[in-house]
Design a protein around this nucleic acid. Structure first.
Lengths: 339, 339
DNA sequence: ATGAAAGCGCTAACAC
DNA sequence: GTGTTAGCGCTTTCAT
């Protein structure tokens, strides 16, 4: 009676085993290139896999072994240099036979933590974090449960996880030196606000350190650092007020294009000429900065390279490395008409 | 002898059951708010869960029931209106107790297909696809294996999956009408190139249809549609040549900000005044278009709303709905100085 | 070299 | 209302 169409059964490892006339263990071994299978059996199984279009279940795999999936945690999906970093991660991961799944942290900590937990619960093999907001303490904790490599978080003494960064303090120095070389003396910095004293692991504080150091090195007195709350609706007004005020430095090093672009815009809107009235160097060298109408000089931190290095570090962790590894690469200045 | 620190055992449903002095089934029921648990037992279990900081394994859950995880497939991470769409998806999903994991398709089909397969293999409960390149045929096939809702793909007759779109042909009409209302008669369109005849499901062809229809409606003769290959390195040069040539229309409707911004840039660089020499309306109303120095008029398709609607559709599919659902919302023009 | 069988942590029948 | 138990699809000893 029950002549209804047979439910399109999922093809499992058992289906393949039966089709090939071997044991499930044999199929499993072939799938993982494990040791101990004859070439004949191997070919036989591969044919069945091909014919049946078999794909192993990630979930089932995760319960015993690896899932061959890496998680990527982002602060926000609109971060301008994300695409590059991601491309770097994907190239290395895919080449090594790993898949990637991403989670977006929306820039607040609880969200990031729950993402990591979710990735652990999904039995992913490792995690790359980009510009994490998470405290070092928590990172250490999670890193004990799953291999983690972090981009954009300076914690060179961390033991349980790896870090990969562009040298942010050095980048800031390079920017200031370029400004000084052009003859500017009255140089200020716009940094990420508000200032959070204990986040010296983040990139912005690192850039502040480099800035202050370069200012001192050039003998330009006390470093002037300004902040605009990035959650403030009245932010644009405050920027305008700042630019119109008597405190405005002749040249500005801005911690990120995220702030640099609006500042450049505000300046031009007010009739300030860039660089004749105000010189500008920002950070990240995002695509928008490269637009001819914007043409904002910016520090480039080679996102692709960061992504690659972090993924390589992660894979070697997964491969068994125990000692932490902390990589630093050098950023470079992309010169444009804004200074 | 083996006095090494006891391996930090993962706390499983069994740990909780023992701690609470109940059966694993009881714990499972509490976790899923299932029917048939006394309030006393429930509280008891919840306390243990809290105390032990228990989180169920997604992988294990997926093997029998749901994972409470939705997959989101993107064409590319740099799509300018992605953040909004994603925000819409996340808000609805999280409110319903679902987690989200994303995959990036890098705008080519094999990648997208393998992402979907991976999500199926990870036993996700459903998938939201944004601006998919996948053919309708393949979508139908995958949709038989997992609930799928698609944003930015017009296929109102599809049975196995749902679609949510802004009305792209209508949006194009609105743009042309706005141009006509300003008095422009010589109106061209820049569309996505190269033209692929069978992709009328995509948003660009839909916008072409609306454009042609509005041009006819206004009695402006044959529609003029131009294309620049977006993979072409010499693209900027071609745009410049086009703008300098005799064929340049007085006003341009551009299929996306992705092309609109470079065109605006090229025009201004060449000394063309916008809108005095060339009027421009683009599509997507991305943040860059809103920059004062750019100030490009653009059609807004309310990405947040699209994301919400698609997720609601997906959840109701997961909930058991069988008939397809195809939602269309109206875009609106964001007026700026470019026309 | 190959296969049988014991789980991994959970959900869903089914008993009680 | 609560507990027992049989799998889900794999990986991994351990026999053979």
């Amino acid at each position: 009676m029950n002549e209804a169409k047979p439910p399109p059964q999922r093809v499992t490892i058992r289906t393949v085993a039966e089709d090939a006339g071997v044991s499930v263990a044999a199929v499993s071994k072939v799938m993982r290139n494990a040791y101990g299978v004859s070439e004949a059996l191997r070919q036989n199984v591969l044919e069945s896999i091909e014919r049946l279009n078999y794909r192993p279940s990630n979930a089932a795999r995760g319960m015993r072994g690896q899932t061959y999936t890496l998680g990527v945690v982002l602060v926000g999906i609109d971060n301008p240099f994300l695409p590059q970093v991601f491309a770097g991660i994907a190239s290395v991961a895919n080449a090594a036979g790993y898949k990637i799944l991403m989670g977006v942290g929306a820039a607040h900590m609880p969200m990031e933590a729950s993402l990591i937990e979710q990735m652990i619960d999904s039995h992913m093999d490792g995690i790359v974090m980009i510009a994490a907001q998470l405290s070092g303490k928590l990172m250490e904790k999670y890193a004990r449960q799953i291999p983690i490599a972090v981009i954009g978080h300076h914690e060179p003494l961390a033991q349980t996880f790896d870090t990969v960064n562009a040298n942010d303090s050095h980048g800031a120095k390079l920017a200031v030196r370029a400004l000084v070389a052009k003859g500017y003396r009255d140089i200020g910095m716009v940094s990420l606000g508000p200032h959070r004293p204990h986040d010296h692991y983040d990139v912005a504080p690192q850039r502040e350190i480099g800035f202050a150091s370069a200012i001192a090195e050039a003998g330009l007195g006390a470093p002037k650092i300004f902040r605009f709350d990035n959650l403030d609706d009245a932010r644009l007004g405050k920027i305008t007020t700042f630019l119109a005020g008597p405190d405005r430095p002749r040249a500005l090093f801005v911690w990120s294009d995220l702030d640099g672009i609006p500042i450049l815009n505000a300046a031009r809107q007010m009739g300030l000429r860039v660089p004749e009235d105000l010189a500008l160097i920002a950070y990240d060298n995002s695509p928008v900065a490269a637009l001819p109408l914007i043409d904002l000089a910016s520090m480039d931190q080679s996102g692709t390279r960061l992504g690659q290095l972090a993924t390589e570090a992660l894979l070697s962790r997964i491969g068994g490395r125990k000692e932490a590894q902390h990589v630093l690469i050098d950023p470079s200045l992309t010169i444009r008409s804004s200074f």
